[in-house]
Design a binder for these strands. Structure first.
Lengths: 245, 245
DNA sequence: CGATGCTTTGAGGGATATCAAGAGGGGTGG
DNA sequence: CCACCCCTCTTGATATCCCTCAAAGCATCG
């Protein structure tokens, strides 16, 4: 699973049909691979990247930094994701990207991607679609932070991430490595840490899910999905997890 | 300003360079124009559109509908915006789109857009960029609902919309038509209506902005931007409003 | 002119932020 | 190898913000 090209192909095939020619172009993309420690930034708000990141393994997060030093995570990304492709077209980063757990990331020059898109429009469309799914994930996060209760919001986040990890084949049965701290969870869901903890307790009490020591364990998927009002449609993937299990 | 083609060209030129050939392709796009009353949906969650909407005039909003009937607006769109282009690549809508005030909307068949993209990749890139700016707007809304105070969140929303309207040349000096109800503002910012009203009063007290009867009046842009921590970088436009005014 | 929907305002209670402090674990340096 | 430190998790107490409920004022519209 450590071949960046294969990873990207598999990830795009989650939602898009790739022609053999597309795959060939992906396979010819040059890239550097680097490793990052938890908490380490690899792109900062305000920078103008010349390369696009592909998560090869581990977990990374995108976040806004506010005036008062407060942090708001806007999304998390797993192997196969492209957490900053938008910089291909937007130049200046409006947010930072950091490793959450230890992470391996491949960097592909923008020039090469653009060239591939021009030659293979269908490849560009696949990555465009990827960015559109990201946008759908953002929309869902708006709703999470605006309209859902703390319990539902947390349940929804757990569902989404578990589902995406499952899709990417990164789960160990019903458990998944999710190395965030409670503080980071709070910075994602807009809760104070004490509230995160109490909400977590409340969720544990439902026996649908457990999260501790960086491990997410799903115990009753269907009920958890119900609590979080999670409907995976917005992820636009082939369903890896039947809602009735 | 009622020519849909010109409108789209101008809107894309806000952030992208279009070749004469791109403009020609836009000008040849067939489209239907329809008018909608406030509150009227024109695309619903779950549908699979075959046409893409272009706002010609008025205001439209995208929103999630929750299980309990609650509504969460995720974004607003003005003349020149494409509030559902993502459906080109995502098939099923994960949200609905409705008119907020009276709105005129042009509909362009997906097929025609796709054909234009294949012939003119640069035109596709321009619209891709548009969707990426949308995503940046979503990210900002996550932060608004998660990390900012009620006052800052409302100020930020006002700044963003006023700024975008200004960009599009839709303002009358320092006032802009923004025909939302307080209820809808609440469904955008994740506040109860009483809180919306009190937050509004608080903002009025700063003499930086007023909003009543569907009109947004900016009285002190720089101070308002400061209250809302508004930095327009994420909109990726040529600056239509100097922050020192 | 009654009905409807939006705005305005008050009162009260509940949820969550804030503050505080202890427990546990892992790493570091003496 | 032990002691200390730091970081995260855990928990309690308190304060405050905001939601909910309620109702009146006002405009629009049939």
């Amino acid at each position: 699973m450590y071949n960046a090209h294969q990873l990207l192909v598999r990830s795009l095939q989650m939602h898009s049909r790739l022609a053999r020619e597309d795959v060939r172009h992906i396979s010819s993309l040059p890239h550097d691979v680097r490793e990052f420690q938890p908490g380490e930034d690899f792109i900062r708000q305000g920078e103008v990247p010349k390369v696009a990141a592909l998560v090869v393994s581990g977990l990374v997060g995108r976040y806004h930094l506010l005036g008062n030093g407060r942090r708001q995570y806007v999304s998390f990304h797993i192997a196969g994701d492209l957490p900053d492709v938008q910089a291909l077209f937007l130049r200046e980063m409006d947010h930072s990207v950091c490793a959450i757990g230890p992470a391996i990331v491949a960097f592909v020059p923008h020039r090469m991607l653009m060239r591939a898109f021009t030659r293979r429009p269908s490849l560009g469309f696949a990555i465009w679609r990827e960015t559109l799914i990201d946008a759908a994930i953002f929309r869902e996060a708006i709703t999470n932070n605006g309209a859902r209760s703390t319990v539902a919001g947390m349940a929804h986040l757990f569902c989404e991430l578990f589902y995406r990890a499952r899709e990417a084949g990164l789960n160990d049965g019903m458990t998944w490595d999710f190395p965030v701290s409670l503080t980071q969870l709070g910075e994602t869901l807009g809760m104070a840490i004490a509230t995160v903890y109490r909400t977590l307790q409340e969720l544990r009490a439902t026996s649908t899910v457990d999260f501790r020591e960086g491990k997410l364990v799903i115990k009753a998927w269907a009920r958890l999905a119900k609590i979080g009002e999670f409907d995976p449609g917005y992820l636009h993937a082939k369903d890896p997890l039947d809602s009735s299990s």
